[in-house]
């Protein structure tokens, strides 16, 4: 079997290796530094496993309880923000693309607003809103999900928009409607299956943003993973970094699971995309 010919614009092998090495280092060096930091002995300056051992020590459970609370809250908030993306953003974007394509830019602009506002400005705006939310539905941590639903909009919108543009949703919608589909029938049977990659990317990025969010939770006095790590950091920075590492791995596994869920039900085609030539006598009568 001959080797696949190289694209004329593709970088040379050496260039690819250098690019991979630089990018890999960007990820690996901070993580390796974190690992090394967690192994330091604060007393002697040498290396020890005591910081890791203290994480799982029974007498430290109450100390680190806030972390477990933070992780639980971040999971809950992720689910809430994902629900906002799936139940509000996806149908809205599909509807606008199909029925009001001229408003697509307006929707994009609205979705990008959170990206252009500093978190502190957002919080100032949220304070009166959350005073109202607190009076009406309480101050439980899940209510922070409304704010998170807003801050993930720019990222989720971009992921979905690319997918919508790629599949030509408007023509598919017209085909569905002429075949007798209702709006929700089309959304469920055609739009969602064909937006699987966009939805998957939007969900992934939503989970990642929520697990990494600190400012809103801190300023609105809610506990999530990042605020919990901040609390631990004041008590023991070595253990805090160890927990950060564990969280990093846990979130990575969570994102893998989300990504895997996005592929459930996707059928693989058995043949390569080589169309069969048109038959010279294709028409047959019904019998």
């Amino acid at each position: 079997m001959s080797a696949k010919p190289r694209h004329p614009l593709a970088p040379a092998r050496a260039t690819r290796i250098i690019i991979l090495a630089v990018i890999g280092a960007l990820f690996a060096v901070p993580i390796a530094s974190m690992v090394e930091f967690t192994l330091r002995d604060p007393q002697t300056g040498g290396h020890t496993l005591n910081n890791w051992a203290s994480l799982f020590a029974p007498d430290a459970a109450s100390t680190y309880e806030v972390v477990w609370t933070g992780i639980g809250n971040s999971l809950l908030l992720s689910a809430f923000a994902v629900a906002v993306v799936l139940l509000i953003l996806v149908p809205t974007m599909v509807y606008v693309e199909v029925e009001f394509p001229r408003l697509s830019r307006v929707l994009e602009f609205i979705c990008l607003i959170p990206l252009s506002l500093p978190a502190i400005v957002l919080v100032v705006g949220y304070v009166p809103v959350y005073q109202f939310i607190g009076r009406t539905v309480g101050t439980d941590v899940w209510s922070l999900g409304f704010a998170y639903g807003i801050i993930v909009l720019p990222f989720a919108h971009r992921a979905l928009k690319s997918n919508l543009d790629a599949i030509g949703i408007r023509v598919l919608s017209e085909a569905g409607r002429t075949l007798g589909d209702s709006w929700f029938g089309f959304l469920w049977r055609v739009a969602v299956p064909n937006l699987r990659s966009g939805i998957s990317a939007a969900v992934l990025i939503t989970v990642a943003v929520v697990f990494g969010e600190f400012t809103l939770a801190s300023l609105l006095n809610r506990t999530n993973l990042q605020t919990a790590l901040n609390i631990i950091n004041w008590q023991n920075p070595f253990v805090s970094v160890a927990i950060s590492l564990v969280s990093l791995i846990a979130v990575f596994l969570l994102l893998l699971a989300v990504s895997g869920l996005g592929r459930v039900g996707v059928r693989r085609t058995r043949r390569p995309a080589t169309p069969t030539p048109v038959s010279p006598t294709p028409l047959r009568g019904t019998r």
Binding site: G168, V171, L172, D181, V190
Partner: peptide, 18 residues
């Protein structure tokens, strides 16, 4: 449209890819 009982073939095939 979905109640008109008409069949339509578009320029861009418009088959459902999935």
């Amino acid at each position: 449209t979905n109640k008109r009982d008409l069949g339509m073939v578009f320029q861009s095939y418009s088959l459902f890819p999935h």
